[in-house]
Amino acid sequence: LDITFHVDGKNIHVHGASEEVVRIIEELIKNNARAEEIKETLERLLR
């Protein structure tokens, strides 16, 4: 699975993920999660 995301100002662009995963990533970023935390969360979800 190949998910890429980047933050452009306040806009979060996520590619290669389901809508549910996109929402989770957006929440994590809004809550100022570190990249490592986001990665760990995604790995748990995608197991």
Rank of each mutant, 00 (worst) to 15 (best):
L1Q: 13
L1N: 12
L1G: 09
D2K: 10
D2L: 12
D2Q: 11
I3T: 06
I3C: 05
I3H: 14
I3F: 12
I3K: 08
I3Q: 05
T4D: 07
T4C: 10
T4W: 13
T4Y: 12
T4Q: 07
T4R: 05
T4M: 09
T4A: 07
F5C: 03
F5S: 01
F5D: 01
F5H: 02
F5A: 01
H6M: 13
H6F: 14
H6Q: 10
H6T: 13
H6A: 08
D8W: 04
D8K: 04
D8A: 07
D8P: 02
D8M: 04
D8L: 03
G9C: 03
G9T: 02
G9E: 03
G9H: 04
G9Q: 03
K10G: 11
K10I: 15
K10S: 13
N11T: 14
N11E: 15
N11H: 13
N11M: 14
N11K: 13
N11V: 14
N11W: 14
I12M: 07
I12C: 02
I12L: 08
I12S: 01
I12F: 14
H13K: 08
H13I: 12
H13G: 03
H13S: 09
H13F: 13
V14Q: 02
V14W: 09
V14P: 01
V14H: 02
V14T: 03
H15W: 14
H15M: 13
H15Y: 14
H15D: 05
G16R: 06
G16P: 02
G16W: 06
A17C: 07
A17K: 02
S18H: 05
S18E: 04
S18Y: 05
E19L: 13
E19T: 12
E19P: 13
E19G: 07
E20D: 11
E20N: 07
E20Y: 12
E20F: 04
E20S: 08
V21G: 01
V21N: 02
V22A: 07
V22Y: 06
V22W: 06
V22M: 06
V22E: 02
R23W: 10
R23V: 05
R23I: 06
R23Q: 10
R23S: 11
I24V: 11
I24F: 07
I25F: 03
I25P: 00
I25C: 03
E26K: 14
E26A: 09
E26C: 06
E27C: 08
E27V: 09
E27M: 13
E27D: 14
E27Y: 11
L28N: 00
L28A: 04
L28T: 01
K30L: 11
K30E: 08
K30G: 08
N31H: 12
N31I: 06
N31F: 05
N31P: 00
N31G: 10
N31V: 06
N31Q: 12
N32K: 11
N32W: 05
N32Q: 11
N32R: 05
R34Q: 10
R34H: 13
A35H: 13
E36M: 05
E36D: 14
E36V: 06
E36L: 05
E36A: 11
E36K: 05
E36T: 08
E37S: 07
E37M: 11
E37V: 13
E37H: 13
E37A: 09
I38Q: 00
I38D: 02
I38L: 06
K39Q: 15
K39I: 15
K39T: 14
E40N: 10
E40Q: 11
T41R: 05
T41E: 12
T41I: 12
T41D: 02
L42T: 01
L42M: 05
L42S: 00
L42I: 14
L42P: 00
L42V: 07
E43T: 08
E43Q: 10
E43D: 12
E43N: 10
E43S: 10
R44P: 01
R44K: 10
R44H: 12
L45Q: 01
L45T: 02
L45S: 01
L46Y: 05
R47K: 15
R47I: 15
R47V: 15
R47Y: 15
